[in-house]
Computed example of a mutant assay.
Amino acid sequence: MDKRYIAKRYQGREKSQLAASADQAAEMDDLINFTIGDPDVITDERIIEGAFNDAKRGYTRYTESVGMKELREEISKYFHEEYNHKVGLDEVMVTTSACQGMWLVLESLLDEGDEVIIPSPYFPPYSDQVKLAGGVPVYMTLKEEEDYQLDVGKLERLITERTKALIINTPNNPIGSCLSRDTLVRIGEVAKKHDILIIADDIYTIYSYQAPFVPTMTLPGLSERTITLGSFSKDYAMTGWRIGYIIAKPDFIQVMKAVNENNVYSAPSISQRAAIHALRLRSEIQPGLVEEFRKRTFYAYERLNRLKGVHVMEPKGTFYLFPNIRGTGLSSAQVAEKLLKEAHVAVVPGNAFGPGGEGYLRLAVTLGVDRMKEAFDRMEGMDIFK
């Protein structure tokens, strides 16, 4: 098709570094792949069986556009039981993944030229989704030497009359860091002072290794100011089900409902049924997931720190590691290329994650310890790490 028929906002857009890394990885038979944050754990059989039986019982039609009442009730119950926080049914909207939920939030929130502050390194879709909604991403670099905590003084200096929101993601992809409760409280104070919203991308809530996870919206005075994105993908090993949710005030839920009715209308009914079963079984399912990914993450942490020219902070959350490779004297892209060509190990260069990512790599430990051992053994044999 002639380029002139393509929307200008999509012309010249390059393939994301995440997608490019995955494509390269697919070309090697003996490749060990650390690029994709997709757990290799199959969804718990009880969830699958429950959803399968529900499909046979007739749950194969459209649901309410905001999601099944039964699922919204379970989400509300979850926040009450886990965090003693009240969430009304009119404050919950079920979405086709949290990624689609983020698009929906930004599409409903931003006017042309509105600014959204994004701490960097960040999950790459954030920036593109802000732009596609007509907004302007404003990047704030987080620093390793500051434990990747958000400096509220720097945050405040970035706020302008066009600033609409701040996106936070803790536990964090790609860094594997966690914002402390104190940092979250101080972020909230700045948000209230300047009347901006906080968009909390709460995707890895169970993978908080050093301190219990605290949803931003549960902190004093932040319920009115926080839009929360939740997901079943990582906390329940349900990536392929594409199911998530948004928690926001009722008037904003109604706006997103209207927007979404022109997009996908409602999340898949069978995935919603699976989410209901997942929430009800969480106390049986999640401990095993946390134990497995904690084991993997700390194994990779120990092996990475044995490589010359590499160091990585002790994992605080998620199943990602973000090792500093500046000691090799090479760029993140150069190290990633060498790993791929010489060791047949695929990682994502840090520059894929925005400002502050150069000099780092991201590894997703979504493969078992035996497979990782082989990968790190190969890496230790490379000249750049000797």
Rank of each mutant, 00 (worst) to 15 (best):
M1E: 14
R4D: 10
A7C: 09
K8P: 09
R9S: 13
Y10S: 10
G12M: 03
G12V: 04
R13K: 14
L18I: 14
A20G: 06
S21T: 13
S21G: 15
S21R: 02
A25E: 05
E27H: 13
D29Q: 15
L31Y: 07
L31F: 10
N33V: 14
D38A: 12
D40A: 11
E45V: 14
E49T: 12
G50N: 09
A51T: 07
G58N: 00
Y59I: 00
T60H: 02
R61H: 13
T63N: 02
E64I: 00
S65C: 11
G67I: 01
E70N: 09
K77Q: 14
Y83L: 06
N84E: 13
K86L: 11
V87F: 06
G88V: 06
D90P: 03
V92Y: 04
M93T: 04
M93F: 08
V94A: 05
T96P: 02
A98Y: 05
C99W: 04
G101I: 05
M102A: 13
V105G: 01
L109V: 07
D111F: 07
D111H: 09
E115K: 07
I117D: 01
P121G: 07
P124V: 14
Y126L: 14
S127W: 03
K131A: 13
G134R: 00
G134S: 08
L142Q: 12
K143L: 15
E144G: 09
E144P: 10
E144W: 06
E145M: 05
V152P: 04
E156P: 08
R157M: 11
T163M: 03
K164E: 13
I167H: 09
I168P: 02
N172I: 07
N172G: 13
G176K: 01
C178V: 15
S180P: 10
H194F: 15
L197W: 05
I198C: 02
I198N: 00
D201G: 05
Y204W: 13
Y207C: 04
Y207V: 03
S208N: 14
Q210I: 10
T226A: 09
T226P: 02
Y236C: 04
A237M: 08
M238W: 03
M238G: 01
M238H: 02
G240L: 10
M256F: 08
V259Y: 04
Y265K: 01
S266I: 00
A267L: 03
P268T: 05
P268L: 06
S269N: 08
S271K: 05
S271R: 05
Q272S: 04
Q272T: 03
H277E: 09
I285H: 05
P287I: 12
E291T: 10
E292W: 01
Y301C: 08
R303D: 01
R303H: 04
L304V: 04
L304P: 01
L304N: 02
N305V: 11
G309M: 04
G309T: 06
V310F: 07
V310S: 05
H311F: 13
H311T: 08
V312D: 01
E314Q: 14
K316T: 12
I325A: 03
E337T: 13
E342H: 10
H344K: 15
G350R: 10
P355C: 09
G356L: 08
G359W: 12
L361H: 03
R362Y: 04
R362L: 12
L363A: 10
L363M: 15
V369G: 09
D370S: 14
M372A: 07
M372L: 07
M372K: 07
M372D: 09
D377K: 12
D377H: 12
M379F: 06
